[in-house]
């Protein structure tokens, strides 16, 4: 993982944009938007996860619930990513070697894989259990994993600020 120690990360911190964000009210502004957007990502995913577990909103088919929430989840995710990158560049070199930040990226990737597995592998057979209030074990595992991974992303994300 030599690239983590590359001096290029210092160059990123020296971009004029990085200095502008880091030295003005832009940083707390981006951070507060980041928290709201991230909470929205997790809140909307939580609604689908609880449905996958058969805990909530069982009246609605999983496909309808998920189809109507996904655009909101992605919209919030894009906002969280842009604001996150804005904060990242102000301390790029220290972030890439920060264990909490590294955990956050790994957990994000795992949460993404879990979601991709659901959408590309499981979703094909959706008709079989779409309206069922009691969901098959496979869906319960995916829903629980998603809850755990996203909570982990939040914990790691919050922890970044305690290490830097």
């Amino acid at each position: 993982m030599g690239f983590l120690n590359s001096p290029k990360w210092i160059d990123v911190e020296n971009w004029s944009l990085s200095w502008t964000i880091g030295g003005t009210w832009w940083f707390p502004f981006l951070e507060s938007i980041h928290v709201i957007a991230a909470a929205f990502v997790v809140g909307s995913i939580l609604m689908v996860d609880l449905r996958l577990l058969g805990f909530a909103a069982v009246k609605y088919p999983i496909s309808t619930l998920s189809k109507e929430l996904v655009p909101w989840t992605w919209g919030a995710f894009v906002i969280a990513t842009v604001t996150g990158l804005g904060m990242f560049i102000t301390r790029a070199a220290s972030h890439v070697v920060n264990p909490a930040f590294q955990w956050k990226i790994v957990l994000l990737a795992l949460a993404g894989l879990n979601m991709a597995y659901f959408h590309f592998r499981i979703y094909k057979n959706i008709a079989r259990w779409d309206g069922a209030s009691s969901t098959p074990m496979q869906l319960k595992v995916i829903g629980s994993l998603s809850l755990l991974l996203w909570s982990g992303v939040m914990l790691a994300g919050r922890w970044v600020g305690h290490i830097i």
Binding site: A39, G43, S44, M154, L155, R158, H162
Partner: peptide, 18 residues
């Protein structure tokens, strides 16, 4: 501290999801 803060943000996530 970070654990309790995360619990707090998860609460905000539920506010968003409700």
């Amino acid at each position: 501290p970070p654990i309790i803060q995360t619990v707090h943000i998860l609460g905000i996530a539920v506010v968003m999801g409700s």
